[in-house]
Amino acid sequence: MVKMAGSDSVPEEKFSLKEVLITFQSCLTDNQEIVTDSYVNGWRGLVRFMNSLGSIFSFISKDAVNKIQIMVTHRNGENGDKYETLQSMVKYELDNNLVDLQRRAEHPESGCRTLLRLHRALRWLELFLEKLRTSTEDSKTSVMCTDAYNDSLAQHHAWIIRKAATMAFCVLPGRAAFFQTMNVGSTEQVVAMLGEAMPFISKVYEITEELYKQHNLLELP
């Protein structure tokens, strides 16, 4: 079996919004299944985005790196072909009782549980990036990020993490700094590329959400 490229760690490369656009676009097969390798590679790009802004997002990016590595391990394992798409992963793990549906005990690193954590974080980034896209020059990134967090990840975090996160968001750089980090060009070019990228990220999120909903996996411990 061919191993996933860059399986040892998330490369410390500059973030590229165009790369993330292409990667999430390649996530979807013709029959609307989600390719695991592309999904993970898309997350590698999002981790670079968070890391480029310093330690502010480290509480999320470090966990994402851990989850990425777990997924890579599944793909590179003896049953890696069962993890080719998110749909095949869910079927394989449920059929073989590899998911802890009630409490985390025997399979704390199941693909289904691991992917759910990335899925929840993707929702936060999706909401935040969309707010950045539609914001004005004087919009406060701290408010946008906090609102996105409260509408997604916050409900899955303990109080102390929520408090630390909202405090960290208060020192976020301005909108211009975020756009510069995306390495696209002018503000207009960034907004245009975000306009291209967001529908693909949203589609991947929606398909994953529906897949997990169908199998009652959205609240895995």
Rank of each mutant, 00 (worst) to 15 (best):
S110W: 03
H156N: 12
Q214A: 10
Y149W: 06
S38H: 15
V40S: 04
G195A: 05
L98M: 03
Q189K: 15
P221W: 04
A176D: 14
Q87K: 06
G111E: 03
S202C: 07
G111S: 07
N183C: 05
R75V: 00
N31G: 00
N183T: 03
R113L: 14
A192S: 15
S152D: 09
N76V: 02
F200K: 14
H156Q: 09
R117N: 05
A154M: 11
L98H: 01
I161M: 15
I22K: 14
L46W: 02
L17N: 08
H74Y: 06
W124C: 07
K213D: 14
W159I: 11
V204P: 11
H215W: 01
E13W: 11
E130A: 13
V10Y: 10
V184D: 10
S52W: 04
K140C: 13
R44P: 02
E19C: 05
L116R: 12
W124A: 07
A197V: 08
V99S: 04
Y205I: 06
A5Y: 09
E106F: 05
T181Q: 14
V35N: 14
N96G: 03
G54Q: 05
K213C: 11
E210I: 00
T181D: 08
N79Q: 11
T23R: 15
D147W: 12
E196Y: 14
D30H: 13
W43V: 02
F200P: 00
L218M: 13
N183Y: 07
S202P: 00
M144W: 12
E137W: 11
G77K: 04
S52G: 15
S16V: 04
A158R: 11
V35Q: 15
A158P: 07
Y212L: 01
D37M: 01
H156K: 11
L116Y: 03
I34R: 08
L194C: 08
M1Y: 08
S142T: 04
T85Q: 03
A121Y: 09
A5K: 12
N66G: 15
L122I: 08
E188L: 08
N41Y: 09
K213Q: 15
V10G: 08
T73G: 04
V35K: 15
L211F: 09
F49E: 01
I161Y: 13
A158N: 12
V20G: 05
S26W: 00
C27V: 02
L211P: 09
E12C: 06
F49L: 08
M50K: 03
V90M: 07
D100E: 01
L125H: 09
I207K: 13
N183G: 13
L127S: 13
V20C: 10
D151V: 00
L194E: 07
R175I: 03
G54C: 06
R123I: 02
L116T: 03
V191T: 15
F200L: 10
T114L: 01
M182Q: 04
D138N: 15
L132C: 12
L132E: 05
E209I: 00
G111N: 04
H74W: 10
D95Q: 10
T114C: 06
T208W: 05
L116M: 10
L21V: 00
E84S: 12
E93T: 01
V184H: 08
L115M: 13
I34W: 06
D100T: 02
L211D: 06
S110N: 02
N216H: 14
T134V: 14
S58R: 11
L28I: 14
Y212D: 01
F128K: 08
M89V: 01
K18V: 08
